[in-house]
Amino acid sequence: MLRRYKTVPDLKAHESAAAISFVDPALACKLTAMGVRPGAVIEMIRKAPFGKAYYIKVDGIRLALREEEAFSILLEI
């Protein structure tokens, strides 16, 4: 099936995409308050050394997200 979105872990290093919406309401609540909102451009910086976490940049703010948190952000293709 064709997906019309991707999520943060799909991004390669230094690739960016705009956020569309969130999967999980609890995470959405936390992430929006931290400045990750629909429309915000998310840049992937790197994966954590042992995996399961991502270092991203949103509007100049650096964030570390767990895999679950990163998967919950839907991005534009």
Partner: peptide, 11 residues
């Protein structure tokens, strides 16, 4: 209490 990582990496 849900557990979050979601942490800011300050300058």
């Amino acid at each position: 209490e849900p557990s979050f990582l979601a942490i800011e990496l300050p300058e």
